[in-house]
Each structure stands twice: as structure tokens, then as C-alpha cells.
Nucleic acid binder design. Structure first.
Lengths: 156, 156
DNA sequence: GGACGAATACTCGGATACGAGTTGTCCGAGTGTGTAGGG
DNA sequence: CCCTACACACTCGGACAACTCGTATCCGAGTATTCGTCC
């Protein structure tokens, strides 16, 4: 089980946007240059964040992306769900109803214990991710990181 | 992010072995027939459980697999780790040290806040999975399931 | 009749193809800007 | 001098390939059984 790189990319970009505290939209090319990422692919991921309502995009010249909400209202869970999808990682395919259990629908009213256990674990994971906001991450990072980012944008 | 089907298959097979309560090893073909799964591929997954010390295998005629330990000592976490791998789903590639942050190793002594948050969430997930043993699942399932399984093996 | 040995059937184990999903790239649609021309 | 219309440059957005990982399969290594033969 592996999480895509897009999550790391997205969160770092959101941190960058949070540090800039600018109302000016930032284009994909600039954000990609900060971390030396492929611009077109990063753009694809940022689009997903727009669809999720985390970012807002402005097309045209001097366009780009900006935070759609204040960092306090953006949770890490939202970002992960926007990039990786909202489905559960464990998906029950009901193999218990095949073979030995075929043709006995009355035995399978409740979900199987395996699904229950896995879902419970995933809910704990989601709860943890939902408890961290972008503002928390911004505050938790060392101050030099914010400074460096602002300097880099001032120059470039 | 998606969990492979092997986890569901493995847990169902472990439940089956737990219900049988037999010292006789059960071959892959039988287990596969219970859920109508491809035998060869299921075998591949059971091998992983043997390597993890969850199952013990006996080759040759009348061979097969049996639980290596009592169900109370087998956690769901172990099974997931055996099938999906023990690595974390989120892997930090340190993109913060590229581009804007290049050549400043002193700024990156601690792990970044994103990695910390993700790891914390995964630990909550793992803790939850580790708290459930195979014995818990066996006890939580309806009694008719165990009965049906035993009947199916008695006939076939 | 009992014991030994070889042939056999059955099982696990790892090496080998196939397919889906993720990663990566490209070009078109749309918007703001700057400029040139006319009033 | 000011207004308007046009051409341009820049950006997002979705459609189009390449590649890695998970899925699926096959054949070889090894063991308990079974049958035949010898003592």
C-alpha cells in the first residue's frame, strides 16, 4: 500500500502559499520551480485541489492559484482526500459470499468482521489527519522556512 | 491509495483455518475453493504469511498450511504488514531540500512537519490494527459462519 | 508374512508474463495586458 | 490628449503516452503414500 507523491507535493505547495500571505495568485510554474517539480504534472494535482475547494484558480495572464480559505479551515485530511480519492483503502469484495457461502444472503446481513476492523482503523487514521489544519503545519515549521520561501519569491 | 486484495484473501483464509481447529494442514487448493480464488496466486500470498511467521507450511502429499501460533497471538497488523509490506504508506522524498532550499543542510535537521503529521496518523492506524487479534475476529463473527465452514470442509 | 525400495501422486516455492493505475507530457481555450490607431 | 479595438503573451484545463507496481500463471523441488518385490 503506497501513497502517491502528489500528496507531498500538494502539502508543500499549500505551505508555500500560506507563508506568502499574498492575495496575488501564484502560477504553477513558480510553485514547481520552488521544489524542482514537473510543472505540467503539478498543475494536474493543483486542479484536483481546486475541484475540492481548497484552492481557487484564476486563468489568464497574471493568473495562478491561491488558497480558497484561511489555513485554519483547511485540514490535511481534505488534501489527502482530494489527491488520493475519498474511497477507503480497504475495499471488501464480499468473497465470503462466493464458493462455500454462495446462495445464503440471510447469513450476510451485517458486514464481515474483517471489514469492520479495517474500517475502524481507517477511521482512526482519518480522524488524526482531520485534526491537523494547514495553520498547525505553518506554525509548527521553523521560522526560517517561511523566511526562506518569502526571500526566494521576492528574488525570483 | 489502495490496499491490495491479498489482505482480504489472507484474513478470510486465516479465519477459515481458525474455525477448522484442525492440526491437519490445509492445502492451497482447498482454501482457494472456499472463496473461488485463483489457487496459484493465493499460494503466493500464503507464502508471505509463512515468511512472516503467521502460517507454517508442510510440503509434500497431505501437506498444506496451518496457523503457526494460536489466534490470540496473531494481530491484524501482522497480516497487513506481511502482505502489503512494513513500510509507511507516506514516503517523504525531501523535496524541500531541492530548488529554493538547496544547499542548506543545517535548515533540515528535523523531519518536516508534513512527515510528522502523516506518520502520526499512520501510527494511529497501526495501533488500531495491532489491537485486533485473529481470536477477536473469530469470536466476533456469527456462529453460523464457523459452522458453515466446518460443514463445507467435512463434505468436500 | 513382514520389510525394504522404487515409483507415484500431491504439495509448496520461486521464476515468469499480463494488465491496471500512477506518473509524466502536450496542446487548446480563455483572460488580462500592452500597443497602435483614430477621434 | 483620451478612447477604442486589436494583437499578443501568459495561464489554466483537459486529452494523450510511458512506466512502475500489483495481478495472474506456470513449472520445478521436495515429501508422504503406495505398490511391488525380496527375504
Amino acid at each position: 500500500m503506497r501513497m502517491g507523491e502528489g500528496v507531498e507535493w500538494s502539502l508543500h505547495c499549500l505551505l508555500t502559499l500560506g507563508w506568502l500571505e499574498s492575495d496575488e495568485p501564484v502560477p504553477t510554474a513558480k510553485l514547481a520551480a520552488v521544489f524542482e517539480l514537473p510543472p505540467a504534472y503539478l498543475n494536474k494535482r493543483l486542479q484536483a485541489l481546486v475541484r475540492a475547494g481548497v484552492l481557487s484558480s484564476t486563468p489568464g495572464a497574471h493568473g495562478g492559484f491561491r488558497l480558497a480559505r484561511s489555513p485554519e479551515k483547511i485540514t490535511v485530511m481534505e488534501v489527502v482526500a482530494a489527491i488520493e480519492g475519498a474511497e477507503y483503502a480497504f475495499r471488501c469484495t464480499e468473497i465470503r459470499q462466493r464458493g462455500a457461502g454462495k446462495g445464503r444472503p440471510q447469513d450476510f446481513q451485517r458486514q464481515c468482521v474483517i471489514t469492520t476492523a479495517m474500517r475502524k482503523a481507517e477511521l482512526a487514521w482519518r480522524r488524526e489527519l482531520a485534526s491537523h489544519t494547514l495553520a498547525d503545519l505553518l506554525a509548527g515549521a521553523p521560522g526560517v522556512a517561511a523566511e526562506r520561501t518569502r526571500d526566494w519569491f521576492a528574488v525570483g
